[in-house]
Design a binder for these strands. Structure first.
Lengths: 163, 163
DNA sequence: GAAAAATTTGAAATACTATAACATTTTCAG
DNA sequence: CTGAAAATGTTATAGTATTTCAAATTTTTC
């Protein structure tokens, strides 16, 4: 692997945000769903980095911007964004991260660096296939897969641990 | 698959409990760790079925037995049991389940039936290998894997949904 | 076996995460 | 415009987990 994945190297993050917003607009149009100002703002806040953000972090930022927001405001927006595949919830962190491949069907697999907090979302067909096969072997009907890997990203492996 | 996995068929569950307690005693001895009465009782409570139990469910049962218990009592016991590989936390449920293969190193993969609530813990080397390979491809060092599959177990697929 | 050290437990408070319930406002179709 | 549907505001509360400090118990050391 010569070039690292985005979260692991400096990049023009504004491009990530713009891409995410464009995708969101596009997808909502397709779904006949409304990307209201609050929903869009929450999506932007989630996308401010590649680190998952807690619902209450989002809430605090909304409140700081003068929007009168309560927990349901944020959870509703996050539910909406999840339903349309624009954000994912990371169960092991109780936090939310922007979807890296909105639109395309995929089983998310998340590499979570516990040093820097960044998350890389992978599509790993071989893993999905192996999971499906293992479930099949038990005659188990798979509905949803939660696959979250905690470890250390290449960038943090290289650096001395001054985090 | 001719015979189904344990959680999916009638079985002498007391044998599961006894096995779990024997294993626990054995492992704690090896680790020079103390399986105190509270810890043992919490383990028994967790093992009362193959369904994950919430920390506050455990707490309620302890309290009902007259033990003066507060949340930290339960969380401490659960932390201890997790550290020694005797129970697992199911992140997607915020609940705890007895480890099916204590002692043996394994990456847990959990098949969670959302009809009956039973959980089957599998060791699926092919899955672990695929996960490791996918992480390696990104030069990511894997520390912990959370792999939880929500779906319908064979038993509940067969029955009409009277759950 | 007694004192010191380490581990475990008790107890109260609090932090963090998420949802319920109902009123109000906004949007959209006809 | 008007009624229905969707989205938001608001208050309260449920559910999950940790912090903190004190007390008791067990283990170690002399």
């Amino acid at each position: 692997m010569v070039t690292r994945a985005l979260p692991y190297r400096p990049h023009n993050h504004q491009a990530c945000v713009n891409q995410a917003l464009d995708d969101a607009r596009h997808i909502c149009q397709q779904h006949n769903a409304r990307l209201t100002p609050t929903r869009q703002r929450v999506l932007e806040l989630i996308w401010q980095s590649h680190r998952p953000l807690g619902a209450y972090d989002v809430l605090a930022q909304l409140a700081a911007e003068g929007q009168n927001a309560a927990p349901p405001t944020v959870y509703r927006a996050l539910d909406f964004l999840q339903q349309h595949g624009l954000v994912h919830r990371i169960a092991s962190l109780n936090a939310f991260v922007g979807c890296a491949h909105p639109g395309k069907p995929h089983t998310g697999m998340f590499l979570i660096c516990h040093q820097c907090g960044n998350v890389l979302e992978l599509s790993a067909p071989a893993v999905s296939e192996a999971v499906r096969a293992a479930a099949d072997r038990e005659s188990f009907r798979t509905d949803e897969v939660t696959l979250e890997i905690s470890g250390v990203c290449p960038r943090c492996q290289a650096e001395p641990a001054d985090d």
